[in-house]
Computed example of a mutant assay.
Amino acid sequence: MMAAPAQRRRVYLMRHGSVTYFDAAGKPVLPETVPLNEYGRAQAAAAGRAFAAQGLVFDRVIVSGLPRTVETAGRVLAETGQRIDLEEWPDLVEIRGGKLSAIPDEALHEAFTGAFDGMVAEHKRFLGGESVAELMDRVFPALERLRADPSWDTVLLVLHGGVNRAILSYALTGQRLFLGNLAQAPGCINALDVGTAPNDWVVRFSNYAPPAPLHPDTRSTTMEQLLAQYLKSRRIPLQNK
């Protein structure tokens, strides 16, 4: 008689809630310290209520350690009523950008959007900083370390748009690929089931954003929106690409 397959475990993968990376004049805010804005706090609370409505309980909650992930996870847990210590994994921080002022005007569009455009080459750099290869080099070992720990059944990861794309790309393809056009709205939830075999991943759903699950008002990407905000500081008119 054939043995029943081992029970898969559940990974709930969130992106942090909305933040304000640029002020009204387009000047950048230090991304390592930026907190959730008002809408981001509402998104995090809405995600928490979605989990609470299903009676979900997490064995572990892992964040990158950046304030926007810590605050999002805290607001989610406040809605679920679960008391659990957050684990900070610095190797899961967002892909790191370079110095914006060093990017020439004509290269801004590619610098902002190139790392999230289709199937992205590993050498591609985000805002002149970290490459996609460097991102995957730290995210994938962390993911394997989590999988190797048998102590959990349901885990909540509260991370970032680029990091989430790396994880989802691997789960969908079983390969070292980066699918940049996998949308990750602020405060969104993804659900992945993972088994014991290396490529045993099942993506249950992706980019579920509780305040607006059908995304009726969104046609541009996060990086396109951020580029439009930053161009104000250089007094450059936005052009359709």
Rank of each mutant, 00 (worst) to 15 (best):
Tyr39Thr: 15
Ala3Arg: 04
Ala185Leu: 03
Thr196Arg: 15
Pro216His: 11
Leu66Pro: 03
Gln7Leu: 00
Gly195Leu: 12
Asp153Lys: 08
Leu156Gly: 03
Arg83Gln: 13
Met2Thr: 06
Ala3Ile: 07
Asn181Val: 09
Arg41Ser: 01
Glu122Ile: 06
Ser206Val: 12
Arg68Trp: 05
Phe205Ala: 06
Glu79Phe: 10
Leu146Arg: 07
Val139Pro: 00
Val76Glu: 07
Arg9Asp: 04
Gly26Ile: 01
Leu192Val: 15
Met223Gly: 04
Val155His: 02
Ala3Asp: 14
Leu177Phe: 04
Arg219Ala: 12
Ile167Val: 15
Arg165Ile: 11
Leu159Asp: 13
Val202Tyr: 14
Arg8Pro: 03
Phe51Val: 05
Val19Gln: 13
Glu88Gly: 04
Val202Asp: 13
Gly97Val: 00
Thr218Ala: 03
Gln54Trp: 05
Leu172His: 10
Arg10Thr: 14
Thr218Val: 15
Ala197Asn: 12
Ala45Gln: 15
Phe22Asn: 08
Asn207Gln: 12
Ser131Pro: 14
Arg83Asp: 15
Val19Phe: 13
Leu135Asn: 09
Val163Gln: 00
His123Ala: 13
Met119Ser: 11
Leu100Asn: 11
Ser169Gly: 14
Lys232Leu: 12
Tyr230Trp: 02
Gln184Leu: 00
Gly161Lys: 08
Val70Met: 13
Asp193Lys: 08
Asn164Tyr: 01
Gln184Trp: 03
Ala148His: 12
Gly97Arg: 06
Gln225Thr: 15
Gln7Met: 12
Tyr39Asn: 07
Glu71Asp: 10
Ala46Cys: 11
Ile62Thr: 05
Phe126Gly: 05
Arg60Cys: 00
Val132Phe: 11
Tyr12Asp: 05
Ala25His: 09
Arg15Val: 12
Gly98Phe: 00
Ser206Glu: 08
Asp105Asn: 05
Leu182His: 01
Lys99Asp: 11
Gln229Ala: 14
Leu56Asn: 01
Arg10Ser: 10
Gly17Thr: 05
Asn164Phe: 06
Phe112His: 00
Phe112Trp: 04
Gly26Ser: 13
Thr33Arg: 02
Gly97Glu: 07
Ala46Tyr: 04
Ala78Met: 06
Asn199Gln: 09
Ala115Phe: 12
Leu13Trp: 00
Ala166Ile: 07
Gly180Val: 04
Ala228His: 12
Leu159Arg: 03
Arg176Gln: 13
Pro104Ile: 07
Ala102Pro: 01
Ser64Cys: 09
Thr69His: 06
Leu30Tyr: 01
Arg234Cys: 06
Met223Asp: 10
Leu135Gly: 07
Leu179Asn: 03
Leu227Ser: 04
Met2Cys: 06
Gly26Leu: 04
Leu157Met: 14
Arg165Trp: 10
Lys232Asn: 10
Lys124Asn: 05
Val61Asn: 10
Val61Tyr: 13
Ala183Ile: 00
Ala209Met: 06
Leu214His: 10
Leu86Gly: 00
Arg138Glu: 11
Trp201Asp: 02
Ala47Tyr: 00
Ala25Pro: 06
Ala121Arg: 14
Glu110Ala: 14
Gly74Met: 08
Val34His: 11
Arg204His: 04
Ser206Asn: 04
Gln184Val: 08
Leu13Asp: 02
Pro5Ile: 14
Val155Asp: 05
Glu122His: 06
Leu77Gln: 15
His109Pro: 04
Ala44Tyr: 02
Arg145Met: 01
Val194Asp: 04
Ser64Asp: 11
Leu179Lys: 04
Leu13Thr: 03
